[in-house]
């Protein structure tokens, strides 16, 4: 065996254990979940195949429709508001203001908390009995009412609020990095040509941040789809079942309701949704890197 052979094989050898583990524990179990979604598994996995019965059952469930609708509301608002807010904060912070070093971490730190902590803190905050409503009323505005979290039509927006609070700082950091990466010469050139600040941002800088928008969108979209802990801590799916999301649905059907088949089916639907977002993104990224 020559030394050259070793040098060629060594990286593969070193990588193979982790490759094998990922292959088994991630992709293996994805396949297994896919298999379970076609069986009549209840408390335990079963091998009795039932075709697409679980998929038909799933989409007939009112509970699942609520979860999907909630995901639409939550995902849309969460991603949209985080992007807008993050971009605004980043642009403001980019004005070479004093104290940026203090302000930046203040916006960024919520990201360091887990969603459980965020959810619990906001639960107390939004609770009419001890939170905002109680405080404002104690200031003398006794007519003040803010009880969204107890209202089944508004509770989902409470989750949006808490989610946005947690993540917009992170999106800001992404945009800030993007802004710092823009060549100062371009801005100077635009100024010389007489562009106003608004024009400068609208026509030049924001279009140049396009790749950042894409990355931020992908990060936010998958966080929205898999968000579980935030809902559990903030509302636990309530009032009633008004704030269930697909992730909480999947857990409860698989592990507490003894309907593992339906749970696996919902997991597969979630996977396909995420794949629909991630795969085109990866594809365009890989294609882009080949070009350069």
């Amino acid at each position: 065996m020559s030394q050259k052979w070793w040098q060629q094989q060594l990286p593969k050898l070193v990588l193979s254990p982790s490759f094998a583990l990922v292959l088994f524990f991630v992709y293996g179990f994805i396949l297994y979940t896919g298999y379970l979604s076609f069986t009549d598994s209840r408390m335990f996995p079963s091998n009795e195949l039932v075709g697409f019965a679980n998929y038909e059952k799933l989409f007939a469930l009112r509970h699942w429709k609520i979860a999907i609708t909630n995901l639409g509301i939550f995902g849309g608002l969460y991603i949209g508001i985080c992007l807008v807010l993050g971009l605004m904060l980043a642009i403001f912070l980019d004005q070479k203001i004093r104290g940026e070093g203090v302000l930046r971490p203040i916006y960024l730190y919520p990201m360091a908390l887990s969603f459980i902590v965020t959810g619990t803190a906001w639960k107390w905050f939004l609770d009419p009995g001890i939170g905002v409503e109680q405080i404002v009323q104690s200031w003398g505005y006794t007519d003040f009412e803010f009880r969204w979290i107890k209202d089944r039509t508004m509770a989902i927006y409470c989750i949006v609020i808490a989610g946005v609070w947690q993540t917009s700082g992170f999106v800001m950091a992404m945009f800030l990095a993007g802004l710092r990466g823009i060549d100062g010469e371009i801005m100077k050139a635009a100024r010389v040509d007489g562009a106003s600040s608004v024009q400068l941002y609208r026509r030049i800088i924001i279009p140049m941040l396009r790749p950042i928008f894409l990355s931020a969108f992908v990060v936010l979209a998958h966080m929205a789809i898999k968000s579980y802990d935030l809902v559990i801590a903030l509302t636990n799916g309530g009032p009633g079942r008004a704030t269930e999301l697909p992730a909480t649905f999947m857990y409860s059907y698989t592990f507490t309701r003894n309907q593992m088949g339906v749970g696996a089916t919902s997991a597969m639907v979630m996977l396909m949704t995420i794949a629909a977002i991630i795969v085109p993104y990866l594809y365009s990224e890989l294609k882009g890197s080949k070009k350069s």
Partner: peptide, 9 residues
């Protein structure tokens, strides 16, 4: 109707 408003959760 006999439960207070702040009952949920």
């Amino acid at each position: 109707s006999y439960v207070d408003d702040n009952f949920s959760g």
